[in-house]
Design a protein around this nucleic acid. Structure first.
Lengths: 320, 320
DNA sequence: GTGAAAGCGCTAACAT
DNA sequence: ATGTTAGCGCTTTCAC
């Protein structure tokens, strides 16, 4: 068994509460007692048990971040930024991956719920109903999913999608395809809705598809046979998978078919041909989500009051 | 405040211990009491508090995994495999990123230590001495770092590095460079040692360097001026950064300089020219590390006994 | 099969 | 400034 607060108390001849205070409210304990306790603690290798502390204080000092797929290059920049924001406010950030599985997603929220103070849920795949239930359990912030009553950070992908389709139209394309993302994805829905509004384009929607290279490769056949000359893919991975599979079939990109991705990931930048893509402010989203989470967790927002001096007050009589 | 075991006990007219048993030892409670308790718990939305449970049982059901940089494509496959292995044995896996910072690394181990049952520490950057101290706190398994007394999974990168240098020698290269990795990296040390043994090659060692594209790009000048015709880079990211920076300077790859990476990451496969690289069994490492960790945590390994029948036993007298 | 009670490691009033 | 006491939510003897 590890060394506890009690061992330290014994060894330094003070009470447990004094040891406790030495760590959580140092200014409340006599300087020389403090140094003695600290020395003993150091010698014994004492480490406060944060889980036990959380039991009384209700605060763990941890945040959770849940993503659909860590291997998707969209997420690392978001995670890194979230982490930096968390560290800057003295929180630790723990990450988990749902493998695109809604059940696992809900399970992970539960698993996190008593060990973190709040959760950032990125691109959730669960239904709104399921998310609403979870929201009662623990504070969370959603990224790329809009939901009534839950703090949210979304990226205006609709605007990007319209720009992408506009770019294709401007190049002279008329018959194009949208290779959509997975079923539970809010982003994919946004893109679908957005492209429907772009005039002058005959848009075939293909999907839902897995948000991976495999997902893109799997629809290459249909894209090649559909007679489209332009494609907007759900994300860079899908775009790349599609491009590679098209070229295997002798369809050249962008010679025969133009392809646009979404995310502006490192992967897309390194691919050849260099991928035209819709840039997503992932790092900003990560940072803001954490800031929002921490803000939403603070017990109450304190609004300033100010004194309005009118005519009901005056110096007491006798004071000129 | 969330609903606790006590609320459920009250509402279902039994004692807390019965509710506790309903969840942690269902067979010890009467079937109809159990269904009643379960129904009430469901209605109230009761969730066992795993942190509180951990306080008495000493078991959290969580594992931690710490990596130097989530954005390095080497890690996601490792993490995914580790996660699958953990889920398969009913553990949750929480991931954290140290940003290549040894202090942060130690800090994270501490932060994890009371909320997980064990930690997989991948490519640690801390000193052996620091790691030894941490190893007393909590069970952990090291990946790509060898240390006395700590379970370890390492990849035989030395053999891969020799093969890489052999490949260059076979192609006729004589003056080559090793672009090494960061200071704390065991892998980088292994590679350095390995390449020193390869005969017939005049090897310039450049480093330590950051294990990123920037790290590779930063040494392009030196590589170009060193008059080497072949390079082994610490990893794929460094190799790619180097290649891009060389080509910007008009040095063609592999026309003027051959470059080899390490990791066989997705990123390397998608880059053009397609990267020659040393494949690392990252997924295997992730899976094995988790298996090893769980095995090392089990209180004791139980060895089978068997009965050896010799001559000291016989039927009782009177039984023919 | 279920209840009573102690205790996991820690913090937070309340005393002194 | 320090000690006392009562829990936080849960499990686990020990009785009955």
């Amino acid at each position: 068994m590890a060394v506890t607060i009690r061992d330290v108390a014994h060894a330094s001849g003070v009470h447990v509460s004094t040891v406790s205070r030495t760590f959580s409210a140092p200014h409340m304990v006599n300087a020389e007692t403090r140094t003695r306790v600290l020395a003993v603690a150091e010698k014994l290798g004492y480490r406060p048990n944060r889980a036990a502390r959380a039991l009384t204080t209700g605060r763990t000092g941890n945040l959770g971040l849940i993503v659909a797929d860590l291997a998707n290059p969209f997420f690392p920049p978001l995670i890194k930024a979230a982490q930096a924001a968390a560290r800057g406010q003295d929180y630790h950030l723990f990450v988990a991956d749902t493998d695109e599985n809604p059940v696992e997603e809900q399970d992970l929220v539960q698993a996190f719920s008593k060990q973190v103070d709040g959760i950032v849920l990125c691109s959730p795949r669960s239904s709104n109903k399921a998310l609403e239930k979870l929201a009662e359990t623990i504070p969370f912030v959603l990224v790329n999913r809009r939901m009534r009553g839950v703090p949210t950070v979304v990226m205006d992908v609709a605007q990007g999608a319209r720009a992408a389709m506009g770019h294709l139209a401007g190049l002279g394309h008329r018959r194009v395809a949208l290779v959509a993302g997975p079923a539970g994805s809010w982003t994919s829905g946004e893109i679908r809705r957005a492209v429907a509004e772009v005039p002058g384009l005959d848009t075939l929607v293909i999907g839902p598809n897995a948000p991976t290279e495999e997902g893109g490769a799997a629809v290459a056949e249909r894209v090649a046979e559909a007679g489209v000359t332009g494609v907007l893919a759900y994300n860079d991975l899908v775009a790349i998978g599609l491009i590679e599979a098209l070229e295997e079939r002798g369809v050249s990109v962008p010679g025969d078919v133009s392809v646009i991705g979404v995310d502006d990931s490192v992967t897309g930048r390194l691919h050849r041909p260099k991928l035209t893509t819709v840039a997503m402010p992932a790092a900003d989203a990560g940072r803001m989500a954490v800031d929002l989470l921490i803000k939403s967790m603070s017990a109450a927002t304190v609004l300033e009051t100010h004194l309005v001096v009118r005519e009901s007050t005056a110096p007491p009589k006798g004071i000129p």
